[in-house]
Design a protein around this nucleic acid. Structure first.
Lengths: 223, 223
DNA sequence: GCAAAAGTGTTTAACATACACCCATGG
DNA sequence: CCATGGGTGTATGTTAAACACTTTTGC
């Protein structure tokens, strides 16, 4: 070893797989690319990191350019490093995954991209780079993380009903739960509390509104 | 954005946190550094990646330089990217974690380092860079992975006893298990089979030798 | 008064935990 | 024959799973 000392010319990018739950579906934010060789294809938002920032700072900077964020949960996912993943120059991407609350996200358009929009995971368009694999990895991480952390807070507004919470779990995990058992389990975990308020104005019995006790990551056996 | 286009000058390294279980302890392989600014300190083995290799290939290449491997489990751990983690030039490290079988590892020494040896996790020396954090992250990952995968095969030889297996779990997780319950649980998981052989020659009843059915990663609720 | 979602307990099955003695061998 | 670690079963408690009806509201 240590004889071959070719100088590295590798770029470092950050990509963020941004999820939200909207209209009963899990969705991911994609931008449509302008430049070759992926013109017209869709990709997860990303960009090169700057000399003096961490990858997380880069991810937040780039995320701010696409969504007007209110509550963003962000964590490092995995580093994608296949030498041929970018056909132009070798680029290693430190992928992150992010969760935002569906309701209060407004998308911005920039001149760098043709379009920006949410895509349902069940109907994804053709993806650039290795972004299909990246999204699959991120979904797996999200599903796992729902089961052993309280991270679901990052997909819900401050006040929510137990049914809202159950829906999120059902949509992301793709299974349905018994209402009584789900409530029993969640309430026994000591993660949420009653807000005292109710959601009125619908053609049915008003629902109790709950809040998370802590909106920071905690590790707990959820399901 | 997209106005600040400072050219990136960032190096990409790979570091591997290599674990084994030896003499009843969890150990990590460290090399002692020669060069400033960390001369005399210890670090996890690593190096820069080459232009046309993946980080995993780089990790295996570097690992081969330190240990004569027989069975190495290797996976990407996390990317460490603080701008000041390397005081000389900005270097991003894609950390990996590796598991090797204690018995059949022979260490090589190279002229790049003062020394190479296994350190017990309970008595680590002063570590260079952010390698203390890296090792802690790796230990956490190892502990978690023991609980939801069959990865323990990578720490055991082909034939092993149920007591050998139980010891590994106890050492790494730092708790002790009831022998009968542990056996019941492990056998119910359908991960291992009797080899038909026994370990004789010790001053006690011979122990049945078992083998893993599959020496590849599987996801299962182990404990 | 009817449609729609909210809220609420009990029974049963599965799994985890606690626990103690006999067995086969080497020296 | 004794010291050493190997091997085995049962009873109890805890947690998960299955399951159906009443309540409150808007229209």
């Amino acid at each position: 070893m240590a004889t071959k000392t070719i100088k590295q010319t590798i770029k470092i990018a950050v990509d963020s797989v941004i999820f939200t739950v909207q209209a009963g579906e899990l969705k991911v934010l994609l931008i449509q690319m302008k430049k070759k060789p992926f013109a017209g294809m869709w990709a997860v938002p990303g960009g090169l990191i700057e000399q003096q920032e961490t990858t997380e700072q880069a991810a937040r900077r780039i995320l701010k350019a696409q969504t007007a964020m209110s509550n963003v949960y962000l964590e490092q996912l995995k580093t994608f490093d296949h030498p041929k993943r970018d056909p132009l120059t070798r680029t290693i991407s430190v992928a992150h995954f992010a969760l935002v609350i569906g309701e209060d996200v407004t998308l911005k358009t920039t001149d760098k991209y043709t379009d920006v929009r949410w895509w349902s995971l069940s109907h994804l368009p053709t993806l650039a780079y290795d972004h299909k694999e990246m999204i699959q990895d991120a979904v797996g991480r999200l599903q796992a993380k729902l089961e052993y952390t309280n991270v679901v807070w990052s997909l819900l507004p401050k006040d929510f009903t137990l049914t809202d919470l159950q829906r999120i779990y059902e949509i992301i995990l793709g299974i349905s739960f018994d209402k009584r058992n789900f409530r029993k389990k969640i309430l026994s975990l000591n993660l949420i509390k009653k807000s005292g308020k109710q959601r009125k104005g619908e053609a049915n019995r008003p629902a109790e509104l709950y809040q998370f006790k802590h909106r920071i990551l905690e590790y707990i056996d959820v399901l």
